[in-house]
Design a protein around this nucleic acid. Structure first.
Lengths: 330, 330
DNA sequence: GGCACAATGCTCATTTTGAGCATAAGTGAG
DNA sequence: CTCACTTATGCTCAAAATGAGCATTGTGCC
């Protein structure tokens, strides 16, 4: 048996202190131009049932974490997972929402992208528009109305401290994440925004917070445990990733129009894009190839159906999309 | 107490199956234009002692994983950690190198960037040029000689299978990761290259492999357990990150010249950059501001000393470097 | 045929890159 | 003291990538 000593000479081989480890999955699909996550019903947690992400224990039988995750998700939801990527491992003692046993609790979170939305193997599993939980993240229809109330409360939170340094720090964070003073918005900072709201006590999941939270319309629907945090992590990661890796195609049907593709990218990023430039980009990058088919039935000129060129995965820079927000006419 | 049922109705609240969890740290510094990682001596493992990354158990006392990591690294190595980021959680059953106990073993790996290279609190800890372990990743002096031998062996590996589909897949991977047929090299695919070498049996750490591995000069010095894999993950992540976040500055002294900065970026990315364009980029992005000082003593015209503009962290796109490889004159 | 509505094609002014040339300012040798 | 050499800095120029729009082309519907 191998022996390891850390640099102090203590034996660390066995890594004592066994911990409880769980897996959580953010399973994403995009249908009808809306970004959706697969959710399940979770009991307990103060107000009866609430939505949660599919989660399960780490099963020792599986050779790798990812394989374990694939196995039980596919069994549980009858949803075959295509693209899977590890997101983050959460281990905060006070954020897990489950402190019953003495073990340290970890959750290893994964992001999965799936193509089709089956009705759901289980009655309790359902697809939900992810902006239901994070309404301030959707800028497709212009600035989300939820932001008015949120900004007011955040400003109040920043102002409620006497310490000028702390106050300054809070204001800097408001500026950086919500673009509060300079009107800037970086769509990738989803987690930072959520965490800020959490700290400011605007997230009901934060136990022991002052009851002065938003009424829920503005700060979205809660989820069980810290699952909204996991969801926020997933969205942020995905928004970043589509810019430099062609992962959106994992969400598209075998054949689609450029505009459907654009709608999907917009759904994920929560912004609108300039149509002509978007298609120029896609064409130029050689991400798709034309098929015979065209759309029909809908109003307007029929669109050509295209399909993803799998070969690009083998080509040089393996590009994604660099998002370029369009000015909204409204 | 809360109760959670998964979608099958089984109770998953307690996430049974306790696991052993360890923390591993890739602590990076850059001195004299060389990228270095902090290593410790590890006993056991076939051939006596070998280099390993600082690792320790997850201590339940700490509120978060990151805090726990910071605490024991600082205590163990007397090295204060600045920037810390979670890298990845490894949980392969057969890659951990430690299967003594029945528990599933996880390692949560972190990447840390530090500014100064203290002589090392412990005699057993030492800074090592990271290319010692991954020599094929350094293109600063032109194509690494190690690649000749590696490519030959990889081609042989691809060719040794009869199944044409598998063979095709292997060749595609060689092309994608090592640019074998199209001469392309993506410096971020460090992990993919390492894993390919591992699968091809060219990495001594792979137990039960055919002894036909490279002699070590080409495939670098081994590390304990799967620590080279962790290191490869860290390098790949860091190479990607410096392109869009100003993290290099975590490695720089308070004041430095633009050329030192360039050397550091080059050290990390393993490529050479076009000098004039590099400084134009840095200037234009407003990443640094001038100081009074200039260098002296060395040969050549003295260079102005600059310092990182911390404010950029609060500014809009929070840019990093977009690396642009320069043509090597040689 | 005439409309309304998307899908497509193309233009044009800016910026952003990639590559170099030219000059400036020290050090060390003879 | 001057020349040779070395590294730091300034600047130029052509090519490619972006950001915004205008113009045309097919279709389904009165």
């Amino acid at each position: 048996m191998t022996t390891v000593k850390d640099t102090q000479g203590r034996d660390t081989a066995s890594l004592v202190n066994p911990s409880a480890v769980g897996l959580v999955a953010v399973i994403v699909a995009a249908t009808d131009g809306e970004p959706r996550a697969l959710t399940v019903q979770v009991e307990g947690q103060a107000r009866g049932r609430s939505d949660g992400l599919p989660a399960g224990p780490l099963v020792p039988e599986h050779p790798t974490l990812e394989r374990g995750l694939r196995a039980w998700v596919e069994r549980q939801t009858h949803q075959r997972l295509g693209y899977v990527e590890q997101l983050y491992t959460f281990g905060d003692r006070d954020r897990q929402g489950d402190e019953a046993h003495g073990l340290h609790t970890l959750s290893v979170a994964y992001l999965a992208l799936v193509r089709e939305v089956r009705p759901g193997g289980l009655a309790e599993a359902s697809w939900r528009n992810w902006y239901r939980y994070l309404p301030w993240e959707d800028f497709r229809e212009g600035r989300p109305p939820a932001l008015e109330e949120i900004e007011a409360k955040l400003l109040a939170w920043a102002g409620e401290t006497a310490d000028p340094k702390l106050r300054r720090r809070r204001e800097d964070r408001l500026s950086l994440t919500f673009g509060l003073f300079d009107g800037t918005w970086n769509e990738e900072r989803v987690l930072e925004r959520y965490e800020l709201l959490f700290e400011a006590g605007l997230i009901p999941e934060a136990q022991g917070q002052s009851g002065a939270a938003c009424d829920g319309a503005a700060t979205g629907q809660p989820m069980a445990f810290d699952h909204r945090r996991v969801l926020a992590t997933a969205i942020g990661r995905l928004r970043g990733k589509i810019k430099y890796r062609p992962v959106v195609f994992e969400l598209m049907p075998p054949t689609f129009t450029l505009f459907q593709l654009q709608r999907t990218v917009e759904a994920l990023s929560g912004t609108n894009l300039h149509k002509q430039n978007f298609r120029r980009l896609v064409a130029q990058q050689g991400l798709v190839e034309e098929t015979e088919g065209v759309t029909s039935g809908a109003t307007g000129r029929p669109a050509r159906l295209v399909r993803f060129r799998r070969e690009v995965l083998l080509e040089r820079p393996a590009p994604g999309f660099r998002l370029r927000p369009a000015k909204r006419p409204a």
